[in-house]
């Protein structure tokens, strides 16, 4: 589908979202969204998911149920979200107030050579989330719209779903730590205090 507006820069969008995170917890998707989060600055409460394609939103759900007083952000790619679409139904049924799922929608499988994803042909992820029952959904097409929507990511009664239409520029990788055991223990210690 041809789009007339100028799409957002993904690194800039993620940096602007995370700038206002305060105590919020972050789960990334694999690949580019992982590098975008790392580029915005590391934190003990970032959990970088380097694999498990299709699982990011559900990791967010389990975390949001366990930590109802903290905001949980999932920032992932359109390809990653498309692989786990059932999660939209499962999350909508659970209605976690504190969960916001953000898809960086470049309409491409960026990490694997920029092949078109289903959103390129018109599949509307925010529409699917709305139909599943997410009380608040949006497709963000401009920097102004993003600025206006960021507070909702942190304050609105969730679950919130937001697809940010980003351009398909291939950006340099910014690699966070990659040892899964280390990442999970670091995160859990920061949030819960112990591994038991």
């Amino acid at each position: 589908m041809q789009t007339r507006f100028k799409k957002l820069d993904r690194r800039d969008a993620v940096a602007r979202i995370l700038k206002q995170r305060r105590e919020a917890l972050l789960i990334t998707g694999l690949g580019s969204s992982c590098w975008d989060a790392a580029a915005a600055g590391d934190s003990d409460t970032n959990f970088y998911v380097w694999g498990g394609m299709g699982g990011a939103a559900m990791i967010g759900l389990g975390l949001a149920i366990a930590q109802p007083l903290r905001r949980v952000l999932v920032i992932t790619g359109d390809g990653e979200m498309l692989m786990g679409l059932g999660a939209l139904a499962t999350i909508a049924v659970q209605r976690p107030k504190n969960l916001s799922v953000i898809v960086l929608d470049n309409e491409r499988y960026g990490e694997t050579g920029m092949q078109a994803t289903h959103t390129h042909y018109g599949v509307d992820l925010a529409g699917m989330a709305a139909c599943a029952g997410f009380p608040l959904t949006a497709t963000i097409n401009s920097n102004k719209a993003l600025t206006e929507f960021i507070p909702q990511l942190y304050e609105a009664n969730g679950p919130v779903f937001c697809s940010v239409k980003v351009d398909d520029a291939k950006l340099p990788m910014v690699l966070p730590e990659r040892d899964g055991t280390w990442l999970k223990s670091r995160f859990r210690k920061a949030v819960v205090g112990s591994l038991d």
Partner: peptide
């Protein structure tokens, strides 16, 4: 306990990883 119906079992694997991250 919070009972969570899934659309497919793999969702549960991811969900319970997140649960543990948050102390559940």
């Amino acid at each position: 306990v919070r009972a969570v119906p899934l659309t497919t079992e793999e969702e549960g694997v991811a969900m319970l990883a997140g649960a543990w991250l948050g102390g559940h």
